[in-house]
Nucleic acid binder design. Sequence first.
DNA 1: CATACTCATGGAAACGATTCCATCATGATT
DNA 2: AATCATGATGGAATCGTTTCCATGAGTATG
Lengths: 332, 332
Amino acid sequence: MSMRRTTIKDVAGAAGVGVATVSRVLSGGSASPETRERVLNVAAQLDYRPSALGRNLRQQRSGGIGLLLPDITDTFYGRLADGVLACARSAGEPVILGTTGDDPEREAELIGMLMEQGVDRVIAVPSGDGEIWAPTLRAGLTMVFAHRLSTGHGDVPAVLADDRAGVRTAVDYLTGLGHRRIAYLGGPGQEQRLSVFRQALGGLVDEELIVVARGSRDSAYAAAAGLFQHRPDLTAVLAGGNLLGEAAVLAARELDLRVPRDLSLIMFDDVPWAELCAPPLTVIAQPAQDIGYRAAELVLREGGRRPRGVLLPTELIVRGSCAPRRTPNKSG
Amino acid sequence: MSMRRTTIKDVAGAAGVGVATVSRVLSGGSASPETRERVLNVAAQLDYRPSALGRNLRQQRSGGIGLLLPDITDTFYGRLADGVLACARSAGEPVILGTTGDDPEREAELIGMLMEQGVDRVIAVPSGDGEIWAPTLRAGLTMVFAHRLSTGHGDVPAVLADDRAGVRTAVDYLTGLGHRRIAYLGGPGQEQRLSVFRQALGGLVDEELIVVARGSRDSAYAAAAGLFQHRPDLTAVLAGGNLLGEAAVLAARELDLRVPRDLSLIMFDDVPWAELCAPPLTVIAQPAQDIGYRAAELVLREGGRRPRGVLLPTELIVRGSCAPRRTPNKSG
DNA sequence: CATACTCATGGAAACGATTCCATCATGATT
DNA sequence: AATCATGATGGAATCGTTTCCATGAGTATG
């Protein structure tokens, strides 16, 4: 009942040539025009599709791109993945997706799985530090980091949003509105943003106002609620991602802090619901899809030369969640 | 510099046995206890990892699960993918992700790519009709549909949310509030929901109040705005997905329709921002992650028997976007 | 004691592609 | 005319694994 796949041998036999010739014709090698035409005709007639299995074994590598993300549920990573898929599709390459949950152990596990599969090109939002990636690099994989760097990364190129400028813009905007006690609500792997945040605030930085959550929604909410309860004197918050922003809105509402009257809120990453929120959220937009697309471009370029990383611009989009600091009412 | 991978031959040589024995030991075949131990020791010492490439070629199938979704940017599909990944991870199977954009042509292309890769297990949210999937089935692939059926599907098992009950609940809720002119704002592949909607409304159904958008945000917004402008007499809307719901909120705001005062809104699929919206959105929650997980379970079960599909419950979550119909003010 | 049967074992044949290499024909150069 | 370069071509090796089959040892049964 189930017929055997048509193989390159069948095509060779039907066209009256050797398998080597068929292979050459199909992969663009040299062949005489008439042979080429005959082979192509026969191949089309037999509906021949070369098996990636055979090719992969011979070439010692499975085509395809490994994509390692912390959480595909987060729309930021969803858009990033979309960018990777768009580029991969135009190159005809399959994408193998894995989620790490920001857990280095899971990440290492996934890397092992990818290498077992013969995947030799990986795009990752790294959670672990350099040690995890060292064996990967030694094995000769083509790597590109996206959105984050790995501490102690080798010379792995990275595609990043310009966090530096983004944080600076946000902080400038808030201080310009008169805010002094500004909190940062961060997620995993945002060391660079933190250092810029400290730097932008100059001497004003108050370490208690810097809180780092793990990747989950629960953790983000806990961090936000804890921060707001512990330091009711803060007047502005910079949330380092849409999950954190969501948590901040929720926690503020829960604690009867009105935005932007009692609390100015600015969020990294523009998401569709930012506009639907009450009030609409002021955000630092990041080109998530571009990040993915460019990362895929880099990892596919494969040209021996090491490309330097890419830095993509962010953009402040002012909506309604930030207001000038209310001057403390001394008579109240 | 780059050392050759350690192969099964190396292990066999170092352990003083044949390759067949090594293979048997590692894949759970029969072997004497002392041989088994020696082989396992040597394998561990050499850090031997069997190459999936060789195995795949021999077994004529690449492990792994193909996952075909309309749009990974949509959080519903993001959660669905998350479920699939969770199950696949526990089975140690890689997942190859492709997005169709609800375009049957792209879908067919992706199927071709998957078959070329030797993927023989696919989970899909189908956009095309039965004809597209016929060759797939004939080729002996294990298929599971998720979230949607393909019209004229063969005996492909499907994992679905209970749309029937969901639509009925929503309509009952709205009619219970006094609404009569209820619109349905649908997306691609929701034929079943539409028929249930018509059925639930009984004789009251007004075909002009049924609008179907394509998958994109733009299309959804256009559909919503067009509907609201064309039929200002409607008092309630059922949005068939979070993109449609988002569009409805946006369009209503644009047209100065206040929710729920002028317009009651109920949305399929509970998303985190539904709670952040003003007003918070009443929704029919769908277990997106479960759908993915169960689909992966089915496709991995592989037991020759054809499992029947799975129907998962939906849940009405009442928030603040629905209100009783205002009795028309005859003196106004 | 002879025969049959179980069980561990290793050699070798697949799997389907790519690619090295030898062969042969043709045309150009000396 | 002899040699050389060029280019098309097919046979065979190769990738790493699984699996079929033959072999031999050991045990049980007649």
